[in-house]
Design a protein around this nucleic acid. Structure first.
Lengths: 203, 203
DNA sequence: GCTTTCACATACAGCGCCGTATCCGGATAC
DNA sequence: GTATCCGGATACGGCGCTGTATGTGAAAGC
């Protein structure tokens, strides 16, 4: 065993919790949120249902935490890195290449699946909707800020409100990602730079 | 009873089938595909499980038929109406108003939900994926055709392949619809014409 | 070092749903 | 009019999962 056999209670529980979160991520991606039973999750993690119920109150709660901890934070980190960096804002075409890479990346793909699950859930469950709303709000603001800076740097006036442009940029990302998800051959990832470059760089 | 008490077997069965499809649509929208039990569907339709299993072999089969019969045909009809009409292709801004109207329409909204359910399922089930692929392929072709005609009419060369432009147009529709679905206040429907007009009409 | 605590395991009771096997009554065939 | 057919109802066995109640051994408190 690489792990020390002696652990404080807090450490031990933290490990269990994380193991459950990891296992849940895998199972959710494989089977989907609803087909995933608590049993399947704990089995994957090597525990029993007892461990689950002493760490989470329900599958939905775990799902929410998983999204907030893994998926959202990953997205945000990426976006903030771009915003905080002092380097000039990249062109739309360049940004599109980054977005395409996320979709190409296996991690990006499973996050995308979980994100879809959330989307569906958001239509019915208030907590999930709140989570989704919060995420998109901050995302839009971030992108709007980048857009605003770009226009300021070029000393030009944006043709639409930065927030609207942000919605459009995000929409294009989502829309292409979904089409690629369904039919990778018909909508390959290399349309990303072309579309973004042609549509947004001319503005 | 408005309905005649005498019906041929075929008629009677067709009614049952349709009643089950209608009921299923309602239940799917309310609870989601996976939370909807066969029992709930037949109960809503006023039948028992016996009726279900003598008309469909599984919930998934019914779902597929529901999508093909109701959702897809509705979308396609709309698109074809636009293509077949001899009137000149409308501007992107004008088309966007139509798209926004679909999202505003209650029928459009529940179709959108079912469409999301399919999307998720398409990631795991081959039959569902085939259904989704087929739908998007024909949709893209339709849009690409409209785009090509527009450019031909204006005697100009499209800046990207019509098929790529079609992907972009569809992507924008999907992306805005999803954002509006999650957070109608932050992304209202009236961004549709602005965004489409600004981005696509200039090309 | 003895007691207390608590994370996790085990045991239990039960629900909801599935899919099939069988039955029934009215439509069809002749 | 009688025999047949079959769409839908009823009955059955059973599985998978849930959530709680209880047990246990190892860390924490003193």
């Amino acid at each position: 065993m690489a792990a020390p056999t002696r652990m404080s209670r807090a450490e031990s529980q933290a490990r269990t919790r994380q193991a459950l979160l990891d296992a849940a991520g895998q199972v959710f991606v494989e089977r989907g949120l609803h087909r995933s039973s608590v049993e399947a999750i704990v089995e994957r993690a090597g525990f029993t249902r007892g461990a689950f119920y002493s760490n989470f109150s329900s599958k939905e709660e775990l799902f929410a935490e998983l999204l907030q901890a893994s998926v959202y934070s990953a997205y945000r980190q990426m976006a903030e890195r771009q915003l905080d960096g002092d380097e000039p804002a990249p062109s739309a075409r360049q940004s599109a290449e980054t977005l395409a890479k996320i979709q190409a990346n296996p991690d990006g793909r499973w996050m995308f699946r979980l994100w879809l699950e959330l989307l569906l859930e958001a239509g019915r469950d208030e907590k999930m909707r709140a989570l989704a709303v919060e995420f998109w709000r901050s995302n839009r603001e971030l992108v709007a800020e980048i857009v605003a800076r770009r226009y300021a740097a070029a000393d030009r006036k944006p043709p639409l409100k930065p927030k609207t442009l942000a919605s459009a940029l995000i929409a294009m990302d989502i829309g292409l990602a979904i089409q690629h998800y369904v039919d990778p051959d018909a909508v390959p990832l290399d349309v990303y730079p072309d579309v973004f470059g042609e549509l947004f760089d001319t503005l």
